[in-house]
Nucleic acid binder design. Structure first.
Lengths: 337, 337
DNA sequence: CCTTTTCATGTAATCGGTTACATTATTATC
DNA sequence: GATAATAATGTAACCGATTACATGAAAAGG
């Protein structure tokens, strides 16, 4: 591995001159430039970033923490992050924690230790205190997910409570009164907010939630299967299921279908996120869409502000959600109450 | 940001002693250890990795290059990579190129410049010469995807040609004679190998491929839609469609269904990869499974060998594939020829 | 009590770059 | 032609750590 010294020797100049040629920071005689470039070519030299970043104390790289990449939702958020990052000369590294807190702290150390310039959490196993402490030391943005009790850290989310409220209200307006809620319990802050929104909407319609219909099975495909089995074990199916993820909703529909229960005809199913598969599943899934691309873009913009000016004000953005009506919810027009 | 010097001053010792305490490399008097630890605590000091890795010339981190994370297939491969990496104290960073060659070279520079210890390609826009050159400079493994003409670089894949052969032979055995092939054309090396396997199986059965039935629409959901539309525009549907991805196969089924054509009854559809959705779609998708987890594990093991001993021999592993028979292919027992 | 080991710690070189400052060569000005 | 201004390049300090080597103190051996 050739170093800058080898290049300097080869070109017959000092390392400082080589550095100047590499960075274009200072004037260098054109013949010298040529000599250096020839030496670089000859030795197949690639500057070692570590030296540079050690001196400059910036890496032009940021970290994004995901729970898992098997959730389709994140791909579009990441595309949003990447589009802004690229434009500004930053690179994006992804890291999945698979819900392993130890793995997460290991990666966070990389930011603390200045191997990366900032961090965007799309999920975290850390609590609000830990995240706030981290944010005091380095640039942090939380996006798409919420951390209960977190203040003083910039974030970009939808209003999960309002979104769930709208979704459940839509179910109620279409004649569904007994509504099950399928989510990940307390693992995700957003799940809990959606729970609150669900309760809000039920209360507003004079309904109460049946504890047996709170299905804390998770957000995965498998969670949908478990939830469906639990429902089937009860004697009376609910009118509707509101799932905090599309993946779970789809497998729930699939499992109910095996028993001849068709979503959109025999039961209503509402998802969350508007993954591509929601559109293509049969029956197509009615769901709540999040502006994934925009969430990513805004998150990166906030992070850049924070990197460039550590004293930039904290911003907590709420982006608009949208109900996407397809086939899986029975439409009875104005009904119910 | 406190540095090791600050800690040394605070504790009244030299930086060397602080470093020794941090790394446990040498004996230090227990009172001194305590003093240093107190100073670290007091200053909230976190060692800067750059200094360390600059000196040690290793980062304990590797890079995985993906085309996109919206493809479910990669999540399990990555889990395999991560399981081995974690065990060995390595960290995994992911990077998506979204088919952007410029982005890819930027990330590769990070490995060249020793910011990362090695690289696993699950996809690449580079050609075999470029990858071979890179491999001459730093540890490289290619996994799950193949690069046409690549030699001298370790790799882990299935035998795509044989897998496609098996899949198509199964279609033929069940009475399908006119078979369409849906793939990404030349973008992925594996797609082409699967094409060759398809042709092999057809030839073997005395059949030839209809050029109009070569659908190079891609591997995405949208590709499935486009392919279905093209088929619908023809007057005579094929007996079967063999898709190089499950995602495309599923949307193809969905689109055909809109016209009343049901996979498993009116047409046969065979996917590739065995994504979770293949099991849960309705009708469930018959597909070819790859040992994703094992591909990831083996890839990381090969990379580690290469990192630890740059002269370790090149290995090109072929792992077994498996046909997963579900509902989307009509079963007529022994038929056809 | 003197010499040899062992232990604990400090000093300074080093990793691969960047950059403030110094130095020398060249050109411009009067 | 002497002086001042400018351009090109070199020297060496520096970023934040690690570590070979040096040093001095304490313990062990005779």
């Amino acid at each position: 591995m050739a170093t800058i010294k080898d290049v300097a020797k080869e070109a017959g100049v000092s390392v400082a001159t080589v550095s100047r040629v590499l960075n274009g920071t200072d004037r260098v005689r054109s013949e010298t430039v040529t000599a250096v470039q020839n030496a670089i070519e000859k030795l197949n030299y690639h500057p070692n970033f570590l030296g540079r970043t050690l001196r400059r104390l910036e890496t032009m790289k940021i970290l994004v923490v995901l729970p898992t990449i098997s959730n389709q939702f994140y791909s579009r958020v990441i595309r949003g992050i990447q589009s802004v990052a690229m434009q500004q000369g930053y690179h994006v590294m992804l890291v999945t924690t698979e819900n392993d807190p130890e793995a997460e702290t290991e990666y966070i150390e990389m930011v603390r230790r200045r191997l990366l310039d900032g961090i965007i959490f799309l999920f975290s196993t850390l609590d609000c205190v830990q995240i706030a402490n981290l944010a005091a030391e380095c640039p942090v943005v939380v996006a798409s997910e919420t951390i209960p009790g977190l203040t003083g850290v910039s974030s970009v989310t939808i209003n999960n409570r309002a979104a769930a409220h709208d979704a459940v209200q839509f179910l109620i307006e279409n004649g569904n009164r007994r509504i099950a809620y399928l989510s990940a319990g307390r693992l995700y802050g957003s799940s809990f907010e959606r729970y609150e929104g669900t309760v809000d909407a039920l209360h507003q319609a004079g309904l109460t939630i049946d504890k047996r219909l709170l299905l804390d099975e998770g957000l995965t495909y498998k969670a949908g299967r478990r939830a469906a089995r639990r429902l089937l074990e009860m004697n009376d199916l609910p009118d509707a299921v509101f799932s905090a993820s599309d993946a779970a909703a789809i497998v729930l529909m699939h499992t109910l279908m095996e028993e001849g229960i068709l979503a959109g005809r025999d039961i209503s199913v509402m998802g969350f996120d508007n993954n591509s598969i929601a559109e293509y599943y049969n029956p197509a899934l009615t769901t709540v869409a999040q502006p994934q691309l925009e969430i990513g873009q805004k998150a990166m913009e906030l992070l850049l502000k924070n990197i460039r000016n550590p004293d930039s004000p904290v911003e907590q953005l709420l982006l608009p959600h949208q109900l996407v009506i397809r086939e899986s919810v029975r439409l009875t027009g104005k009904a119910g109450n």
